[in-house]
Amino acid sequence: MSSDLAFALRGVGAVVGRNFALRDVSFELPTGYVMGLVGANGAGKTTIIRCLLGLREIDTGEIELLGHRVPAPADLRQDVGVVLDHAFLVGDWRLTEVERALRPFYPRWDGARYRQLLDEFGLDLRAKVKDLSRGMSMKLMIAVALSHQARLLLFDEPTSGLDPVARDELAGIIGDFLLDEGHSVLYSTHITADLDRIGDYVTLVHNGRIVRTGTKDEILDAYRVVRGGPDDLSGLVGVELIGARRTSSGTEALVRTEEADLLGGDVLVEAPTLEAIAVHIGARAPRPEPRPLSTGRIA
């Protein structure tokens, strides 16, 4: 177990229901950095976070979290702060009651810090959880995590449904948190713009598998966007067109950088954005047939 790693998943497999499974999921985050976990809805991001937290059993492989093997000792709970896309707190609680309810679970709970953070975030102690806006309830969850002095923050889709101002505030809060070199952040998102600037590492997930993981620049260097006329990008040998989109006027696709040299001169080859990478990888394989609504669950 290495203390240089915030967490590591090694060969993790987990079957989730009949239609979905994580397969051979391996990636790690060095302590002190932000990683974005990027993938379409249903790619497996939330499942990966649940496995990391020990909330879901894994069938194969192993997970290391802050130097401990998962399932980790119970008191590691206070070292990990979780910010989900919905508040996990009781709607009728006032923010003072939130503290009273959570404090017993966290020996290191810092009440003064909680009040100071709520003040900083513009949250009223007398407000009720259910009356908070999307951005405010996210800030509340962050305040809770920072009050029990978490070293690792896990965000599940923190910015979906947030306005641009709140997203920028979040980037600032994460920046403040990372002033401490012992702090790390994992951040699942399908909004890649959040990561274009503050992301140190990026892991691409698709259909329960890791497509690629590395520093943001390594990921951006690994792919090229190619565009050509309707007939330019067909019958290619040795080049995989990832998530090709064909229309009557042309074709656009993602290719691995080392394969881009094999394309003819008529094709436009450009450096990608994270968004282009996410879009084409997300469109790579046909999605599984949606199940009937009556039995479907929201992934």
């Binding site: 002190g32 950095y33 932000v34 600032g172 920046g175 403040d176 990372l178 002033l179 600037r197 520093t215």
Partner: peptide
């Protein structure tokens, strides 16, 4: 400023 403070202030990655 430290690398981390500069990253925070400019809203860019620590790397």
């Amino acid at each position: 400023p430290s690398v981390r403070a500069l990253a925070r202030d400019l809203r860019i990655s620590i790397i």
